[in-house]
Structure formats: structure tokens, C-alpha cells
């Protein structure tokens, strides 16, 4: 697998409004890509197209050698390969943390309950929350819930992880614990596409940074573009973010 994710001239409209106006980029296996940009520039939409929460009007999206736009796509196979974590955690409130994590492995991969629990424990260890295994989501802080959401995704052994502003809903003192989990994950070789406003994280963890503006990839390159932006728009954006 030479590319994990590839977008080629992707166009996406909601009704008459074109939100993605020809987006192209590639992500190699093991690569960590940070997507930054103003609110409304199409970052979430781009992520959602990658695991086909949204269907695109034209262009090519390839994920782990699968054509995402193909009518014959095995959607559930795609979803097994691609994990996604949202800004609003979206844990299942009626299930314990263990049940949240093992639900999909049990249903999709048909593992036993005991194996599911062991898996949950393993993934919770990865995000530092083993002691919360039998708690309910509402008993956890936002940062803890978000770490559980990451563990829940990881339990399906995805090949690519998507993160959509996962720290934006958190109090500043809770963002650190989530970012640390993500950095560890990045160091471990996970392929990641991270939509974020945390420039520090992008600088530390990203192999490449993509700046999206008005539905296109406006500027991209190594994390250096954060200190040395080429376009006035990115300069402007960075000046406002700080």
C-alpha cells in the first residue's frame, strides 16, 4: 500500500453551495497530516467524505486501496479500516465504557465477551483510563470521554484514523491529556488525518500540514509552513490563531 488515503479533485456541494471545490491530497501509510483552516473552509466535510459519511459529486477518493465513490463499495469494510473521532465524543450513554469499546468488535468481528473485555482493557490502557472500565460516560470528564472515544475507534484496529477538532469542546486544561494520547499514537506509526486548531500539536506531531481555504487546499507542506507561510491567507490565519 503506497498511499493510505488519496483525494483527487474532489467536489462536494450541499444543495447549490459548493463546499469542496476540487480538493486533492495524499496521505502515505504511517503519515500524520494536520488539516488547519478557518471555520467553514470544508475541513470536516473533507474528513466525512473520506469514510463516506458524505457522498461527493465528483472526483476520486481512495482509501486503503478502496474506491470510496464506487457504487459497489463495501461500506462496512471501509468503516473497519477507517476510525473517526468527533468533536462531541458521541459515546453511547446507555453503555459502560467497556461496552462502548467492545460493542463493535463483538458485533462485527464476533469476538467473545471475555475477549471483548480484555480488548477494552488493552485499549483503555493505551489512553490511560483502565480504572474507568465500568463507569458510564456521564461519570467522566470531557477529556476522559474523548480518550474513550479514541480507544473505542482503536478497538476496531483501523488502518487510518480521522480526528475532527477533537479538543475543541474541551476546557483548555483538558486538551493536553487528549493531545498526548494522539501524539503517542502518531509515534506508534498510525496513519492519521487530524483537523485541529492546536498549532502546537501540528508543529510537534504532523509530518505534513494542509491549510484549507474556501473549499480548496490553499497551501501545504511540512510543519515549517506554520512558521514560514507562503500565502497571505495562511499568514493572516496564523496571525489570528495566536
Amino acid at each position: 500500500m503506497s498511499v493510505a488515503v488519496k483525494l483527487e479533485d474532489v467536489h462536494k456541494s450541499f444543495g447549490a453551495v459548493e463546499v469542496l471545490k476540487g480538493v486533492s491530497f495524499e496521505v502515505a501509510p504511517g503519515e500524520v497530516v494536520a488539516i488547519i483552516g478557518r471555520s467553514g473552509s470544508g475541513k470536516s466535510t473533507a474528513l466525512r467524505c473520506i469514510n463516506r459519511l458524505e457522498k461527493v459529486q465528483s472526483g476520486v477518493i481512495e482509501v486503503c486501496e478502496r474506491q470510496v465513490n464506487d457504487a459497489k463499495l463495501d461500506l462496512r469494510a471501509l468503516r473497519q479500516d477507517v476510525g473517526i473521532v468527533f468533536q462531541s465524543y458521541n459515546l453511547f450513554p446507555h453503555l459502560t465504557i467497556a461496552e462502548n469499546i467492545m460493542l463493535a468488535p463483538r458485533r462485527v468481528k464476533h469476538i467473545t465477551r471475555a475477549a471483548g473485555r480484555a480488548l477494552a482493557l488493552e485499549k483503555l490502557a493505551q489512553v490511560g483510563l483502565e480504572e474507568k472500565i465500568d463507569a458510564y460516560p456521564e461519570q467522566l470528564s470531557g477529556g476522559q470521554q474523548q480518550r474513550v472515544a479514541i480507544a473505542r475507534s482503536l478497538a476496531m484496529s483501523p488502518r487510518v484514523m480521522l480526528f475532527d477538532e477533537v479538543t475543541s469542546a474541551l476546557d483548555p486544561h483538558l486538551t493536553g491529556e487528549v493531545l498526548r494520547v494522539m501524539e503517542t499514537l502518531a509515534k506508534g506509526g498510525m496513519t492519521m488525518i487530524v483537523v485541529t486548531h492546536e498549532m502546537g500539536f501540528a508543529r510537534r506531531a504532523a509530518d505534513r500540514v494542509i491549510y484549507m481555504h474556501m473549499g480548496t487546499v490553499w497551501e501545504s507542506g511540512s510543519a515549517d509552513i506554520l512558521t514560514n507561510p507562503q500565502t497571505p491567507e495562511l499568514q493572516d490565519f496564523l496571525a489570528n490563531e495566536l
Binding site: L53, R79, V82, F86, N90, L103, A104, R152, M156
Partner: peptide
């Protein structure tokens, strides 16, 4: 709706 979406993203079938 986000609950359904999160579940679908974990590769569960519609019935699951």
C-alpha cells in the same frame, strides 16, 4: 443523529 453516525462509523450494520 450523531449517535447513529458514531455507530455507523464503527462498521455496525443498520440493524445493529
Amino acid at each position: 443523529r450523531t449517535q447513529t453516525e458514531a455507530a455507523e462509523c464503527l462498521a455496525l450494520t443498520r440493524w445493529q
